[in-house]
Amino acid sequence: MKVATGSVIGSSLLAGCLGDNGAGDYPPSTMTFVNAYSEGGGVDTNMREIQPYLEEELDTNFDIEYRDGAGTRVAANTVAQEPELHSIGGTLSPATPAAVAIDEYEGDELEFTLDDIRPVGTISEEAAVIRVREDEDRFTTIEELVEYGEDNPGELTVGSSGPTNRNVLSVIQLMEETDAEFQIVPYDGGGPTETALLQEEIDVAARSVYNSADVNDETLCLTIYAEENPEPDLTDDAPPVNDALGTDIDYDPSNGIQFYFVSADAADEYPDRFDTVVDALEAAMQNDEYIEDLEEIGEEDKVFHNGPDETEEILENAYETYVEFAPMFDEYVQ
């Protein structure tokens, strides 16, 4: 009995010591994935694709919560305040760094800073695109869209995840480089934006290559914000915007990178837990079955993995860029 008791005590002490670093009984049987956008959008799609492999690596199940709104601030703040590292957030850069930059520019009280969240890693990368309905007859090329926007200033509505999303910026860049004038209509995620386009609530949708692949058959892609079009089949072989219009738009600020993150305080309190999540994400993204799943739908090229340090650098660069662009959002998005 004493031996057994001693073993129990020893095990308890060991678990306690490991618990200080976050090992022991981790992860829990259920974790929460906090999506900064609405159901059906790009973050949701990517999570659904990798979810079984991430769950396998962590030996857990994920409940998905949609905390869309306020330019990703709700989700970021929700995860930042979770103390046990039982929640993982999914969002976009530059959207989340942009939220901090915009709040600072406008003098608002910061709901969170980049120091409050800890990147786990990136999951995908994709370029911005401009889409219209397949039956749209007023313009079927980016040149015709711009011409219409010049001849009818403010008439056309362009929907996007917003109000400070990179896709919004892509529309602002287009207006800055041409004489076209559009009315920007922000939505809480890609799903609602696409629904609004198909239901004719808006004329144009500013989206991304893979995030809008689900409406490829019902829409026409007019242009892509990239030096070359990596996915002609998913984008109607749309031309790069600078090639089509002779503009000089910088593509990098509108290039979207999805990343996962946790509470910085929880990561500091439980470093072993953080390492467990980091390793699990990397392993899941390297899973052969996951890659095969993406190959079957022609989206394997979107995979873009960086570890925590590299991702943190990406976020810092995005923040600095959006400090520069903040006045434009104030001017163009009402």
Rank of each mutant, 00 (worst) to 15 (best):
A4G: 01
I9C: 01
I9A: 11
A15Y: 05
A15H: 06
L18C: 04
L18Y: 03
G24W: 06
G24A: 14
Y26D: 08
T30G: 04
T30M: 07
Y37W: 08
S38Q: 06
E39T: 13
G40Q: 09
G41S: 13
G42V: 10
V43E: 13
N46G: 01
M47Q: 00
E49H: 06
L54G: 02
L58P: 13
N61T: 15
F62S: 01
G71W: 03
T78C: 09
T78Y: 14
E82M: 10
P83H: 00
L85H: 04
L85P: 03
H86I: 12
H86K: 15
I88G: 01
S93M: 12
P94Q: 10
T96M: 15
T96G: 09
E106I: 04
E109Q: 07
E109P: 02
L110E: 12
T113C: 07
L114G: 08
P119K: 09
E126T: 08
E126Y: 07
E126P: 03
R131H: 05
V132G: 05
E134R: 02
E134Q: 10
T140M: 15
I142W: 09
I142L: 08
E144R: 14
T157E: 15
G159I: 12
L174Q: 13
M175V: 12
E176D: 13
D179I: 01
F182P: 14
I184A: 13
Y187K: 11
D188W: 04
D188N: 14
G189A: 10
P192C: 08
P192K: 05
T193N: 12
E194C: 03
T195L: 11
T195K: 11
A196F: 12
L197R: 11
L198P: 08
E200R: 15
I202T: 15
A206M: 09
A206F: 12
R207I: 06
S208A: 13
Y210P: 00
Y210C: 04
N211V: 06
D214T: 15
V215A: 07
E218F: 10
L222C: 13
L222E: 08
Y225Q: 10
A226V: 07
E227P: 03
E228F: 00
N229K: 04
P232H: 01
D233L: 04
D236E: 08
D236S: 04
A238N: 02
P239T: 14
L245Y: 05
T247G: 10
P253I: 13
P253H: 11
N255M: 13
E269I: 02
Y270Q: 07
P271F: 07
D272V: 01
D275P: 00
A280H: 00
A280W: 00
Q286S: 09
Q286A: 14
N287A: 01
L294Q: 03
E296G: 00
G298L: 08
H305L: 06
N306H: 08
T311D: 07
T311Y: 03
T311A: 12
E313W: 00
E313P: 03
A318R: 05
Y319C: 06
E320D: 14
T321V: 05
T321S: 11
V323L: 08
V323F: 04
V323W: 04
M328Y: 11
M328C: 00
F329M: 13
Y332L: 09
V333A: 07
Q334P: 11
